[in-house]
Amino acid sequence: MIPDQRGAGAPAGRVLEVSRLEVRRGGRLVVQDVSLSVGRGEIVALIGASGSGKSTVLRAIAGLDPIAAGRIIIEGSADGGAPVRATLVLQFHHLFAHLSALHNVWLAPVHVHGRARAEAEAQGRVLLDRLGVGHRAAAMPHELSGGEAQRVAIARALAVDPPVLLMDEPTASLDAARRDELATTVRGLAADGRTLLIASHDSAFVEACAHRIVVMEGGRVQ
């Protein structure tokens, strides 16, 4: 079953609505009966121990893994014809290793959304600047520090203007100072009207930025 990502049907103000989600992996139920919703401009943190199913829920919402049962409804994005998708910032960033930071950011707008390259590149520079890594635009991924790569990955995700931004363990490769910076960045995004669902087991980070916390354990919401 493919997640239902139609642009309509979410209750007013709610950008993401997940109800009774079930995900199986190799026949085993790894996520069951998960329901949650995230409103516009809201930061929701999904917390829980490793293996509690946080990442699986994010991957299901992003459409990377098929779901066994339940519904995922995402409100239409601002972008016209492009498919409505929640974009996931993966735990280890996974910047495209053969492309520069800036190229990573403009790749999808040009090839998926059909923007002109010059326009997409200019927008990419603005995003990198806003995230504080404008000076690293020409760098290759392996030349970036963990914090810089994280920011470029966020810029790359924002470049396709997703209705929901999903982040999986964003602080995994950051030291304490970088973690605080990231919390500030994330709050700034929410203040701009971005909707965020963040999976993390870093309680300090979650307390610093989340509006609401959803706790998961053994594949269920507590």
Partner: peptide, 13 residues
């Protein structure tokens, strides 16, 4: 790495 392919898919490629 499969993560590279996930990153591409989540961007809509």
């Amino acid at each position: 790495p499969p993560g590279q392919l996930d990153a591409a898919r989540t961007l809509g490629l």
